[in-house]
Design a protein around this nucleic acid. Structure first.
Length: 202
DNA sequence: GCGCCGATTTGCT
DNA sequence: GCAAATCGGCGCG
């Protein structure tokens, strides 16, 4: 099991990074516990040129400042007044690329409280942060240290599909970009109604 | 299975 | 004032 290094995150092609994050392990240490979950669905956000990105046109606010940090940083923000969403910042400092982690498969024993929902734990961007306990305190944390990181255990997805991103209809032409990546047929994906315009690429 | 609604922070897209 | 990188509950059928 190999922790991903800065070289993985500090690259130009954010869509390639989003695809390569599929099948990787998200590792969270909390006290004495270690929680591990496999990433099964992601979305790429291409910064200043991407109308769906918070950093479109180089917009800087208190919230988006984290996106301008160097690749390998966690960007956690509050959405819809209710949910936290977890992203991985990529590329070099001041280039605000990010990958949204939309769904994970927990590889640990999930507490009973998360099993009450009809949806599987981790099967949506706000369910990922709920399952792993992410909140504002995780915003800006480095993924190159030991408390929160992503690792490669050699697992490779058999089949990968792409689709337009979810919930970004306001973004004009960028709403059509095939920047959502997921492991085809995986049970822990977000609701399958989102897969209507998906295309298998592997 | 589908569609509507409310929750309620953030930034004006 | 309003829409947003969402989810769960409800009604309908």
């Amino acid at each position: 099991m190999q922790k991903l290094s800065a070289d993985f995150y500090i690259r130009e092609e954010v869509d390639l990074i989003a695809k390569e994050l599929l099948g990787k392990l998200l590792v969270v240490k909390s006290g004495n516990q270690i929680y591990t979950a496999r990433i099964v669905e992601t979305e790429a956000y291409a910064g200043v040129i991407d109308a769906a990105s918070h950093a479109y046109k180089n917009k800087r606010t208190q919230r988006t400042e984290t996106m301008y940090m160097k690749g390998g940083t966690a960007y956690v923000y509050f959405c819809y007044g209710m949910h936290y969403l977890f992203n991985v910042v990529t590329n070099q400092q001041d280039i605000p690329h990010a990958v949204l982690i939309r769904a994970v498969e927990p590889l640990f024993e999930v507490p009973q409280q998360f099993k009450k929902s009809k949806r599987l734990p981790g099967s949506g961007p706000a369910l990922v942060t709920k399952l792993l306990g992410f909140d504002k305190s995780h915003d800006g944390i480095s993924l190159l240290k030991n408390d929160l990181y992503i690792a490669d255990d050699g697992y490779a997805p058999v089949s990968i599909a792409v689709s337009p991103r979810i919930g970004v209809d306001y973004a004009g032409n960028a709403a059509k970009w095939l920047y959502r990546f997921f492991i085809e047929g995986h049970p822990y994906l977000s609701p399958h109604v989102y897969n209507k315009n998906a295309v298998k690429i592997i």
